[in-house]
Simulated scan of single mutants.
Amino acid sequence: MTHRPRRFPQLKGYLGIAVSVLCFLLALRPVHAERRLVTAEEMNGTQLYRAIQGRAFKIEKRIRPEYLIQGDSPVEYSSGVLYKNGYIITTYDAIKYYADISIYGSDLKSYKSRVVVFDKSRNIAILKIASGGPKFKTPLAIAKQSYHGEVVYSLGGLNGIHSAFFKAILGGKVSGKALYHEEGIGVSIRTYMMTNLQTTDGGSGTPVFNTRGQLLGLVDLNSLPEKSLTGVFTFVLPVDDEIRSLMNAIR
């Protein structure tokens, strides 16, 4: 048997040398580390849930008789968050028209509470627990800023559910002037945050946290372009400087 002579006997050797030189040059180029998307301060979903579960409350409200419509249930639900011992922040629309308010923590215990201050134009209300309630060594941390596309979590009580934990993505910001405000509630809010958080009746006042466990804002089901969009995406009332001042003024 005869073998066909190779036309380029040295091609394989040259190719090997070229590959070696290329690898050497690539090794010499400077390497720039990518920005870390997850820092040591951030938590995964399980860690975050454990850190905040004791601060989220379901609010049970009994409607005042003069506002009760025939056929409607006299009891409704919303959510809130304990931002310092004895005090819960929620949205004003979550507690309007109600005479008797009870709150339920993660321990499923019921606590009586009352409204101590509210701002209808900013859609904010603060409740004081009458007695008892969970105690924390430090107040709840408030986020100073938010980022488009960051992962956020919510923990609140929907109708029939005590503690619903959801993961979502924070979208862009929306002008408060572009939204519908029932009965003038929330008309002073300049900017809302938008998220793909899935929520429904009973979700108003649900706290939204970043992955550092800091409070970003509260779900505001009162402010929507159209009420039919409830459950598709959600607007979040940011805890801005004015709301923080209101929270800190309560002693």
Rank of each mutant, 00 (worst) to 15 (best):
R114D: 01
F233H: 12
L229F: 14
Q53F: 10
A18L: 12
P225A: 02
L127E: 01
E66L: 10
T46K: 13
K128H: 08
V239R: 10
L170Q: 08
G203F: 05
N159A: 08
L127Q: 08
N44P: 00
L221W: 02
S175H: 03
A51W: 04
H148K: 11
R36P: 06
R212N: 06
I250V: 09
F24N: 11
G160T: 12
G157V: 06
R122G: 06
V232R: 03
V239E: 05
D107N: 13
R64Y: 10
G231S: 11
I89K: 02
K173L: 00
S204Q: 03
Y192R: 03
D100V: 14
S154P: 09
E76Y: 13
Y77H: 00
Y111P: 01
F24P: 07
K177T: 07
D220S: 15
D240E: 15
V219H: 11
S106M: 12
R29M: 14
R55H: 02
R35M: 15
R114A: 07
N159S: 04
T234W: 02
L221N: 07
Q214C: 05
V19N: 12
S146Y: 13
P5C: 09
L11P: 13
V81M: 01
L179C: 05
D72R: 05
E60D: 12
C23N: 12
A164I: 08
E76R: 15
D119K: 00
T90E: 12
R122N: 11
R212D: 05
Y98V: 11
I142W: 03
L127W: 03
S106F: 14
Y83V: 01
I250T: 03
D119V: 02
D100G: 11
S73F: 04
A27Q: 15
L28E: 09
L158Y: 08
M1H: 05
S188L: 11
G205T: 03
R4Q: 06
P30F: 00
V75N: 11
V219P: 02
I52M: 13
H162L: 04
D93H: 15
G156D: 01
K58H: 05
P238R: 14
Y180K: 05
A168H: 00
I95Y: 05
E76L: 15
L25D: 13
I250M: 00
K135P: 06
M43N: 12
E150R: 00
I250P: 06
P65V: 08
I95R: 10
T200V: 01
N196R: 03
S73L: 03
Y14L: 14
F166L: 06
S20W: 09
I185T: 11
P9C: 07
S78F: 04
G105E: 02
T195C: 09
K120G: 04
D241K: 13
E242H: 11
G160N: 10
R35H: 09
G13R: 12
E76P: 06
S188D: 13
G184W: 02
Y77M: 06
V219N: 08
K84E: 00
P30Q: 05
K167G: 13
A143K: 07
C23A: 14
